[in-house]
């Protein structure tokens, strides 16, 4: 661990990468960090150990990067969100699957010691018969009902099979966090939660897990320092129902039957409201993950923010 001298963060324009980079500079004061993203990086962190590169996620760009500099640690935080309707499926397949494969192979080829891949709890799917506390060994059912989610599952499975195949050569950790929220995270769930106009289902009220962005970044750092090869769910110990979460955020719960909501999304999607159809299931049925493997290996690790505190902080933003 102490020999980690350099790190590559892919997806550096995101809020989570930014916080993680800050934490890494504290944990590893001599670590040289390279942050790359295909998007422009706004307000770069002022730290001489961090350099920024903006380029398209192509084979040639990544090959040049790895040839020019070796990295002890690679953090792959660049999963293109399936919950953002502006990302079309072919773009997502290219970024999430082809690029991930490229990054993993280059890391192996150029002697990286540890890779952390950020997946999502969405791979388990939101189904009415989900058990509570889904473990890492559970089947990934997200794309059963909605084929549009296949890149989410395939990226995770690609990384998993690659991880086990190469476990004797490189340490790989896959993280499947619950919903990440925080002032620097602009994902669909954060927007949905805090929007006073976004309706909820009157006939369902699923339980949710939310992790504050700071805790998630600490979990990524813990993954670098402590977690052995494997897949880990990351979620705090507490849960909250969707309607209670919106109450904490002091946004009104406009309640509609789920069939009306589903019809509305079909009609209005891409016009007024960019909420993908398949995400409706995630506000109908719970997908509560088991965090025991993460807690066992990352200890001592305490989540700083309880869910209600994380939501309160979101309200302040």
């Amino acid at each position: 661990m102490s020999e980690y001298k350099s790190a590559l963060i892919i997806g550096m324009a995101g809020g989570l990468a930014r916080i993680t980079a800050t934490l890494l500079t504290r944990e590893f004061p001599n670590m040289k960090i390279t942050g790359v993203d295909s998007r422009p990086i706004k307000e770069p962190l002022k730290n001489s150990n961090i350099r920024y590169l903006q380029f398209r996620y192509s084979r040639s760009h990544f090959e040049k990067l790895f040839r020019d500099q070796s990295f002890d640690v690679v953090l792959h935080l660049a999963r293109m969100s399936h919950s953002d309707t502006s990302n079309n499926l072919s773009q997502r397949l290219e970024t999430n699957i082809t690029s991930t494969n490229r990054i993993l192979d280059l890391s192996l080829k150029f002697g990286t010691k540890k890779i952390v891949v950020l997946s999502t709890f969405h791979v388990y799917g939101a189904l009415s018969d989900n058990p509570v506390f889904i473990s890492e060994e559970s089947p990934l059912k997200a794309s059963i009902k909605y084929p549009e989610l296949r890149d989410v599952v395939e990226m995770d499975q690609l990384a998993s099979s690659w991880m086990w195949k190469n476990q004797n050569h490189i340490e790989t950790v896959i993280l499947r966090p619950c919903n990440i929220i925080g002032p620097q995270i602009r994902n669909t769930m954060t927007q949905y939660l805090s929007s006073p106009y976004a309706p909820v289902c009157s006939d369902f009220n699923p339980m949710f897990q939310f992790i504050h962005e700071y805790d998630m970044s600490r979990a990524i750092v813990a993954a670098i320092k402590k977690l052995p090869v494997g897949i880990y769910n990351v979620a705090p110990d507490d849960v909250i129902s969707l309607k209670e979460a919106r109450k904490v955020l002091q946004v009104p719960n406009i309640q509609l039957p789920s069939f009306v909501l589903e019809g509305g999304v079909r009609l209005l999607s891409n016009a007024f409201w960019s909420f993908p159809r398949y995400l409706i299931d995630y506000i109908k049925f719970a997908s509560i993950i088991d965090n025991s493997a993460f807690k066992a290996h990352a200890q001592p690790f305490e989540f700083r923010y309880r869910i209600k505190e994380a939501l309160e902080l979101l309200k302040l933003d």
Partner: peptide, 30 residues
């Protein structure tokens, strides 16, 4: 039963009152 949790209103009403999916892992966790 498994189908019960997907019934609008009724499934949520039962869960809010303490009912749980009759899945073995689910019950062991409880």
């Amino acid at each position: 039963e498994r189908f019960f949790t997907s019934i609008p209103y009724l499934g949520t009403w039962a869960a809010e009152g303490g009912a749980v999916l009759g899945d073995r892992q689910n019950c062991l966790n409880l």
